[in-house]
């Protein structure tokens, strides 16, 4: 006789369980954790370089770098004086919770205020994988075009902050900032939006101040 068995289980429940373990660990060690997401070339690493140089003496930060190949980004972060560990995903287009948990032994979490996980450059897949982070920060650069918000809604919908980078290039582009803000708000009404130029530092302080406040009052 045919029997119906209700499973009611998330398809990514394996990832979710490890993400929750990571989250508990970060919480117990008092580390605020960020998952930084964007397309390739949007400026995640450049933003982190400027950020790390500006907060060097205030808070202890470490970075997990996710890339398909090379340790180039970890080298850039290490050059700013922060502890960085590179994960090479060897083809996978996102980090998952297990990859993150496997490198946590390389850090002394109790000494850290902030752990930044720079995800693989991709607006699609990383959005689905919880890593155990406290905050998801999504970066879009003006050169990518305004339509990316509506084309990749999931990542913007789940963001705790949205950063628009490369605003120094606005005079040369047809990027409508008001429309961008409108489109983001349609998906995520209350999300803070920061407009920055990671290259020349404009606007980075506002984001840094917001983040420092989150560290002190999580």
């Amino acid at each position: 006789m045919t029997e119906r068995v209700y499973v009611k289980k998330h398809v990514l429940h394996g990832n979710q369980a490890i993400a929750e373990e990571n989250r508990e660990l970060f919480k117990s060690k008092g580390v605020l954790t960020l998952n930084l997401l964007s397309s390739p070339g949007a400026g995640k690493t450049t933003l982190l370089e400027g950020f790390l140089n500006s907060i060097k003496n205030e808070i202890n930060v470490a970075v997990i770098e996710g890339d398909v190949a090379t340790a180039l980004d970890a080298e850039r972060i290490a050059a700013c004086g922060a502890h960085a560990v590179q994960i090479n995903t060897h083809g996978s287009c996102h980090l998952d919770a297990k990859m993150v948990s496997q490198v946590l032994d390389y850090f002394n979490l109790a000494d850290l205020d902030l752990l930044v996980i720079e995800n693989v450059g991709n607006l699609v897949c990383p959005a689905e994988f919880d890593l155990g982070e406290d905050l998801r920060i999504v970066l879009l650069s003006t050169t990518e075009g305004i339509d990316k918000v509506v084309k990749y809604p999931v990542v913007f919908q789940k963001a705790d902050a949205v950063i628009l980078n490369k605003i120094d290039l606005l005079p040369y582009l047809s990027f409508n900032v008001e429309q961008f803000i409108h489109d983001v708000r349609e998906l995520n009404p209350k999300v803070p939006i920061f407009q920055i130029s990671a290259r020349d530092g404009e606007g980075v302080k506002e984001w840094t101040d917001w983040l420092i406040e989150k560290i002190h009052k999580p």
């Binding site: 029997e3 068995v5 499973v7 009611k8 398809v11």
Partner: peptide, 9 residues
């Protein structure tokens, strides 16, 4: 995104 149920015997 979840498995609701399966049917079998």
């Amino acid at each position: 995104f979840y498995i609701d149920y399966f049917e079998g015997e």
